[in-house]
Design a protein around this nucleic acid. Structure first.
Length: 255
DNA sequence: ATGGTAGAGTGTCTA
C-alpha cells in the first residue's frame, strides 16, 4: 500500500502531474497541500474518473488541502477543532483502518514576525489535536508540508540556515514534541535516498544544484510504523516541465 | 546585500 504527500503549489497548474501520478504510481492515498483554489474548483470529476474518492477544503489564492483515496473517507475533520482559523490547512479522515491527517503547516515567513508567532500557535494546537487523535485511534498516519527542517542533515547549508525560518530551535522543538507523543519520523527511519530533500526553491536553480530541504514529512503512530517497508522522494516529478517546488513523497506499507 | 522565481490575480502578497 502506497501513500503519498505532495504540496502541489496550485492544483489548477499541477492537475496534469496529479493525473499522471494516479495513473502510473497508483497510490492508495494521496494528501495534497497548497491547492490555491476554492473547494468548488477542485477537479473532483477528473479524480473520480480515475477511480478515486476525493475530499477537499480550499480557499481563494492561498492554502487549501485535499485527500484522495481508493477507499471512501469517513468521519471527516476540516481544520483544527481547537484553533479558530480562516486559513484552510488541515483535512483528516478515517480511510480503511487508518486515521489519516493531512496538513499544510504555516510557513512563518521570518523568525520573530507575526506570521512566525501564528505558526508557533498553530503548531501548539496541532500538537494537542494529535494527542487527542492518538487516544482515539490505533493506526494514525500524519502527512504534509510541515515547513520544518528537523535536523541539520535535512538542509543543504545548515550553517547558513541555522536559526532561520524552517530551521529555528522553536520550530524543531515543536516537531520533536509531536514525535514525543508517540510518532515515528518515517522518512528518517526508513530513508532510501541521501539526502532526503523534498523541497527546492524555484530561484537560482536550486533543484539543479540539489540545494534543498526536507520539510514534507510522514509521522506514523508506533503501531502502523511496524508495517513500514520503505520511503521514496519522487524527484522525477520535481524535474518535470512546470513543476511544483515540492516533490511528492511516498511511503510503502505492508498490506 | 533583501535579491532571485512562481502562482494567484492585476497591484501586491505569499512562499
Amino acid at each position: 500500500m502506497k501513500i503519498i504527500t505532495w504540496n502541489v503549489n496550485s492544483i489548477n497548474v499541477r492537475q496534469v502531474h496529479l493525473e499522471e501520478i494516479l495513473k502510473d504510481v497508483k497510490p492508495a492515498i494521496i494528501g495534497l497541500q497548497e491547492l490555491k483554489c476554492e473547494t468548488a474548483s477542485f477537479p473532483f470529476d477528473a479524480v473520480k474518473a480515475l477511480g478515486y474518492h476525493a475530499i477537499a477544503s480550499g480557499q481563494k489564492a492561498y492554502n487549501g488541502v485535499a485527500l484522495i483515496s481508493e477507499v471512501e473517507p469517513k468521519d471527516i475533520d476540516v481544520n483544527l477543532p481547537n484553533f479558530e482559523d480562516d486559513q484552510q490547512r488541515l483535512i483528516a479522515a478515517t480511510i480503511g483502518d487508518c486515521r489519516v491527517i493531512n496538513v499544510y503547516v504555516p510557513n512563518g515567513q521570518k523568525v520573530g514576525s507575526e506570521k512566525y508567532e501564528y505558526k508557533l500557535r498553530w503548531l501548539s494546537a496541532f500538537h494537542d489535536y494529535l494527542k487527542d487523535t492518538l487516544e482515539k485511534y490505533e493506526n494514525v498516519v500524519v502527512m504534509g508540508d510541515f515547513n520544518i527542517v528537523p535536523k541539520d542533515e535535512d538542509v543543504y547549508a545548515p550553517e547558513l540556515w541555522r536559526g532561520k525560518i524552517l530551521c529555528s530551535d522553536q520550530e524543531r522543538t515543536a516537531f520533536n514534541d509531536m514525535l514525543s507523543l508517540g510518532f515515528v519520523d518515517a522518512l528518517r527511519i526508513f530513508a532510501t535516498q541521501d539526502p532526503m530533500f523534498t523541497w527546492w526553491d524555484y530561484r537560482q536553480g536550486q533543484f539543479e544544484k540539489d540545494e534543498g530541504m526536507r520539510i514534507d514529512h510522514f509521522l506514523l503512530s508506533k503501531n502502523i510504523s511496524s508495517r513500514m517497508m520503505r520511503s521514496e522522494v519522487l524527484r522525477e516529478v520535481r524535474a518535470k516541465e512546470r513543476p511544483s517546488d515540492h516533490a511528492p513523497v511516498a511511503i510503502y506499507l505492508k498490506d
